[in-house]
């Protein structure tokens, strides 16, 4: 555990909670891609299956349970509780174009050809592109609420901080995981355009418009 890893995890947690609270408080999921949230729920489910097979630390277990719980709670709010506010017409990204190639890639390129390892690899690859339906939705409608931009910022920051964590671990522990690093770089790059707009346009208080 290093400072980048910890702040990355906390940033990830902040993103998840910001989104959950935003939907809960506003009683609306307008502008939120339900498809991205389903993908994240799949990501957490397939990655954290090791909850059943190995114990790493109390921190590790707690965070995994919280992430999974929040992911399903978010999906529930969007598709059940506040379904009437869900903007399905604008959430039109074809997720099969992500899930199918990612599934194929995880079978072809993995550390070990075992079910758990392939599912872990699948989750890493899928996470790197899971935000695309959300970004697509924003580009389609041309705007996002401020709180949604905070969510995206925290979510992008999390993977960027993980990149520094991996650099740290490589230098100080000799540890590296090429699959996680490459996918993490891809994931962070997808947020670059958004980061640029978030910072330069000063969309800290105004609605985000393209």
């Amino acid at each position: 555990m290093n400072v980048f890893r910890l702040t990355g995890d906390l940033s990830h947690l902040a993103a998840i909670i910001i989104l959950l609270l935003k939907i809960w408080k506003s009683r609306s999921c307008a502008g939120i891609s339900g498809k991205s949230q389903i993908l994240f729920a799949i990501v957490f489910t397939t990655r954290y299956l090791d909850l059943l097979t190995s114990f790493i630390s109390l921190y590790n277990t707690c965070m995994k349970v919280i992430y999974i719980g929040c992911a399903y709670a978010t999906v529930y709010l969007i598709y059940a509780k506040f379904r009437a506010t869900y903007d399905g017409n604008h959430d039109s990204f074809r997720v099969e174009f992500l899930v199918v190639p990612v599934g194929g890639l995880s079978v072809l390129i993995n550390h070990d050809f075992s079910p758990l390892e392939i599912l872990w690899t699948f989750s890493i690859y899928l996470e790197s592109v899971a935000i695309l339906p959300q970004l697509f939705m924003i580009s389609k409608t041309g705007e996002a609420e401020t709180i949604t931009t905070h969510y995206l910022f925290c979510l992008g920051l999390y993977r960027a901080l993980y990149l520094f964590n991996w650099i740290w671990r490589f230098y100080f522990e000799g540890f590296f995981d090429m699959i996680a690093i490459v996918a993490g770089v891809v994931q962070t790059v997808l947020y670059c355009d958004f980061f640029y707009l978030y910072v330069t346009k000063g969309w800290f208080s105004r609605p985000y418009r393209l």
Partner: peptide
């Protein structure tokens, strides 16, 4: 191949 497990990262 690099050792990725057990996975302590989230």
């Amino acid at each position: 191949e690099d050792d990725a497990k057990p996975k302590d990262e989230l």
